[in-house]
Amino acid sequence: MGRQMTEMLKGTLEGIVLAILAGRPAHGYEITARLRERGFSDIAEGTVYAILVRIEHKGLVDVEKVPSEKGPPRKVYSLNTQGQQDLEEFWRTWSFLSERLEQLHDERR
Rank of each mutant, 00 (worst) to 15 (best):
Glu99Cys: 15
Ala50Arg: 03
Arg34Trp: 07
Val66Arg: 09
Asp106Glu: 14
Leu104Gly: 15
Gln82Ala: 08
Lys58Pro: 10
Leu21Thr: 15
Tyr77Phe: 14
Val53Gly: 05
Ala50Pro: 00
Gly28Phe: 07
Leu79Glu: 02
Gln85Asn: 05
Phe90Ala: 03
Asp106Asn: 12
Val66Gly: 04
Pro25Thr: 02
Thr32Asp: 07
Glu107Pro: 05
Glu107Cys: 03
Ala26Pro: 08
Ile51Cys: 01
Leu101Asp: 15
Asn80Thr: 05
Glu102Arg: 14
Ala22His: 10
Ser41Lys: 12
Val53Arg: 07
Lys58Arg: 12
Phe96Met: 15
Asp62Ile: 11
Phe96Asp: 14
Leu52Tyr: 02
Met8His: 13
Gln84Pro: 00
Met1Tyr: 10
Leu87Ala: 00
Val53Met: 08
Arg108Ser: 12
Asn80Tyr: 00
Ile20Lys: 02
Phe96Asn: 14
Lys65Arg: 11
Leu101Met: 12
Asp86Asn: 06
Arg34Ala: 09
Leu13Gly: 09
Gln4Thr: 14
Arg36Lys: 14
Trp91Thr: 10
Pro73Ile: 06
Arg100Trp: 12
Glu7Arg: 04
Gly46Ile: 11
Gln82Asn: 07
Glu56Gln: 08
Glu89Leu: 11
Gln82Phe: 09
Pro73Val: 05
Gly46Ala: 07
Val63Asn: 02
Val76Leu: 03
Ser68Phe: 07
Glu102Ser: 15
Val76Tyr: 06
Gly23Glu: 15
Ile55His: 02
Val48Met: 01
Leu79Gly: 01
Glu37Thr: 13
Val48Thr: 04
Arg34Pro: 02
Gly46Thr: 12
Arg92Lys: 15
Ser78Val: 00
Glu30Pro: 06
Arg34Asn: 07
Gly59Met: 09
Val66Met: 05
Leu60Phe: 13
Pro25Ile: 04
Gly28Thr: 06
Glu89His: 15
Glu45Pro: 10
Glu89Lys: 14
Tyr77Asn: 01
Gly59His: 08
Ile16Gly: 03
Glu69Thr: 10
Ile55Pro: 02
Asp86Tyr: 07
Leu60Val: 09
Ser41Phe: 10
Lys65Gly: 03
Pro67Ser: 07
Thr47Met: 02
Pro67Gln: 06
Pro67Met: 06
Trp91Val: 13
Ile20His: 02
Ala26Gln: 08
Asp62Glu: 13
Ala33Asn: 08
Glu45Val: 10
Ala33Glu: 15
Pro25Val: 00
Glu102Met: 10
Gly46Tyr: 03
Ser98Ile: 14
Glu56Asn: 06
Leu97Gln: 13
Ile31Trp: 05
Gly15Ala: 08
Glu37Ala: 09
Glu69Arg: 06
Thr47Glu: 08
Gly23Trp: 09
Arg100Gln: 11
Ile31Asn: 01
Leu52Gln: 00
Pro25His: 04
Ser95Tyr: 12
Asn80Leu: 01
Glu88Ser: 08
Gln82Val: 10
Phe40Met: 06
Phe40Thr: 00
Lys75His: 07
Thr12Ala: 13
Leu87Ser: 02
Ile31Ala: 04
Leu9His: 05
Asp62Tyr: 09
Lys58Asp: 15
Val66Tyr: 05
Phe40Trp: 07
Asn80Trp: 00
Asp106Ser: 12
Lys58Gln: 14
Arg108Lys: 11
His27Val: 01
Leu13Thr: 13
Pro67Ala: 10
